[in-house]
Simulated scan of single mutants.
Amino acid sequence: MDVADLTPAQARRRFREGERVPTAGWCRGWTQANLIAVPRQLGYELLLFAHRNARACPLLDVGEPGAWSTGLFTGDLRTDLPGYRLYRDGRPVADLGDVVEEWREDLVPFLIGCSFTFERALLDAGVPVRHLELGTNVPMYRTNVPCEPTTTLSGPLVVSMRPVPETLVETAIEVSGRYPLVHGAPVHIGDPAALGIADLARPDFGDPVEVRPGEVPLFWACGVTPQAVIMASGVDYAIGHLPGHMAILDVRDERYRVG
Rank of each mutant, 00 (worst) to 15 (best):
R252G: 03
D61C: 10
D80R: 04
P39D: 15
D95R: 08
R212P: 10
V108F: 07
G190N: 06
I112K: 10
L132D: 01
P156D: 13
D89W: 09
F219A: 00
R120K: 05
M140I: 09
E166Q: 11
L72W: 10
L48D: 15
V108A: 04
A228S: 12
T167V: 13
G18T: 06
L48S: 14
F205P: 01
D250V: 00
A54E: 14
S69M: 13
C27E: 00
A247Y: 01
V38A: 02
G223I: 11
S160N: 11
R52K: 15
E19F: 05
T74H: 14
V216L: 03
P92V: 10
M246I: 12
T167I: 12
G240V: 09
R120F: 11
E101M: 12
L59A: 04
W103P: 04
I189F: 02
A201T: 06
W68R: 12
V100F: 03
H183T: 02
P8R: 00
M246G: 07
L111P: 05
A232H: 15
R104W: 10
R257I: 03
P165E: 01
P109C: 10
G223E: 12
T152Y: 13
P8W: 00
G234R: 07
R78D: 14
A232K: 08
A54D: 14
S176L: 02
